[in-house]
Design a protein around this nucleic acid. Sequence first.
DNA 1: CGACTGACCAAAAATAAAATTTAGTCAATT
DNA 2: AATTGACTAAATTTTATTTTTGGTCAGTCG
Lengths: 190, 190
Amino acid sequence: MSIDRKALILQAATKSFVQFGYKATTMDQVSKIANVGKGTIYTFFKTKEELFEEILDKASQELTSVMNRLAAEDNTFIQKLFNLLDSILEFRSDHELFVKLAQEVRDIGTVQALEGVKRMEEYALDFLRRQIEQAMERGEVKPCDASVAAFMIFRLYLALTTEWNKEHEPLDKNRIKEHMILFISNGILV
Amino acid sequence: MSIDRKALILQAATKSFVQFGYKATTMDQVSKIANVGKGTIYTFFKTKEELFEEILDKASQELTSVMNRLAAEDNTFIQKLFNLLDSILEFRSDHELFVKLAQEVRDIGTVQALEGVKRMEEYALDFLRRQIEQAMERGEVKPCDASVAAFMIFRLYLALTTEWNKEHEPLDKNRIKEHMILFISNGILV
DNA sequence: CGACTGACCAAAAATAAAATTTAGTCAATT
DNA sequence: AATTGACTAAATTTTATTTTTGGTCAGTCG
């Protein structure tokens, strides 16, 4: 049996998207990294966008699966949030793709990168909103607009993981977690 | 006595910078709005940048004066913060210049707009940091990195006043204040 | 035979050249 | 002496040209 060329390609493309972003990743480059002819890529993926989509799908699935597992656990809202931050910051692969795409959107505004960012953002915001709503029903969280609160939590996460680095030394994972919890826990909890 | 042409020019330029941003404001346009010849502008300001600087200075002074007045009042940290938000959101002129410049930086990356944003950001962050440090000494605020906390508060403010609007209907002032306080007050206070 | 390849092409992106706009000047005017 | 607006050099925008890249397919190889 011959080697699994599709896996090779996905691996190579993921690596390149994370490192260089969507636009600066060329199909020639992917074929080189994967050690396959360029034509071979097109036997598995109709277009560059479809290849990107599949990688995004995989990342979204991983994120969803992590989030569902955490949501199912019998924990307080704040503990779930803490665990989610932990997962995202410890297992950085998807996080890194997201950060790279966000940077690409900011720097050159690639439309595909924007869609990727939006997709992952949507997933995260939706999950946060639902958790906040549930926690509100259980009386764990003060009454507020769950959409706005989810947005604020997400922006805080972005502020600490990406914006802060523009002017300062990056914060380490524990500092990030500490400060996120500091703001959210007693501020938003009854 | 002839009319105060310098004031006229400053007024016209401020109006134009707020409405169109730094780059899209031309000196011809300013002279038209101010009803003076273009040469007259250059008897008061050496360059377009200097004109911009003076307007920025004025905005910074106003901000500083508001902040100092609030800081002097015998209030809790959170009440001061609440009053600051009130001032900024109610008397929007400086806020609007800041928002316009932030947008210009995001859209076309004008370097002068970036400097303007940075300047006002620096003032605000510095003020917030000092207030947080003092409040920490007074035992009003939990121990934390005051710079990071100031940064987080500032980013939350930006998230609600500008980022939210990209995908949603703008939030009204009271919603913004409510949610800012919700996150900060009990979250950051002992 | 059929999975695989890489030279090839049209379309998109980057770069260069031409045309337009604008910051800043200064001789003329009030 | 203060003010002006036509003027110029420099910067920006638009257009033309060159280069790069996504996608194809005739041919190779196992």
